[in-house]
């Protein structure tokens, strides 16, 4: 009985395999298309996943750029003001281009000597004191210094 059942099973198995081996071309083609479609759908889904996963990353990058933007924007504005001061200055442009080491020395000298004197004279808090110094080279090493309060001009060497 068991052998008969097993023989029947094997016969059926052989017949079904035989039918599958002789499947017509159109059906084989359709099955192939179905398989390719399923696999391409997976590839599409994967690329969509990567595409959508880039959205949060792009958002973070844009956010970081927006946060950093204002501080970056200040620098050109300050530079623009400094440039304007050079252009509107009574001194010629050559003055800002030559002997910068000498002018820096003059600036440091006036900062060290004049500001402490002025602070002691007027009692103005040094943190609020804005110092502007300018010197003119006359060949003798003499220089003139001006001190003013209210706003601060960056050092001359920053501009050039």
């Amino acid at each position: 009985m068991k052998n008969e059942s097993e023989k029947l099973r094997q016969d059926i198995q052989r017949l079904l395999n035989d039918q599958n081996d002789n499947l017509d071309g159109a059906t084989r083609s359709r099955l192939n298309q179905a398989r390719q479609q399923a696999l391409s759908a997976r590839r599409k889904r994967r690329s969509m996943f990567w595409g959508w996963s880039m959205v949060p990353a792009a958002f973070v990058i844009i956010l970081v750029l927006l946060i950093r933007q204002p501080s970056n924007m200040l620098q050109p504005a300050e530079e623009g003001i400094a440039d304007l001061q050079i252009l509107t200055s009574e001194d010629s442009l050559e003055f800002f281009q030559e002997d910068m080491a000498f002018y820096e020395w003059v600036y440091e000298l006036t900062e060290e000597q004049i500001v402490p004197d002025r602070r002691s004279d007027s009692g103005v808090d040094s943190s609020n004191t804005m110092v502007r110094a300018s010197g003119r080279a006359d060949g003798s090493g003499k220089s003139t210094g001006r001190v003013s309060t209210g706003w601060r001009t960056p050092r001359v060497s920053w501009f050039i």
Partner: peptide
């Protein structure tokens, strides 16, 4: 054929 195609799609998914 439709059933096989749908089964393949779902299986892969």
């Amino acid at each position: 054929l439709d059933v096989v195609q749908e089964a393949m799609l779902r299986f892969v998914e």
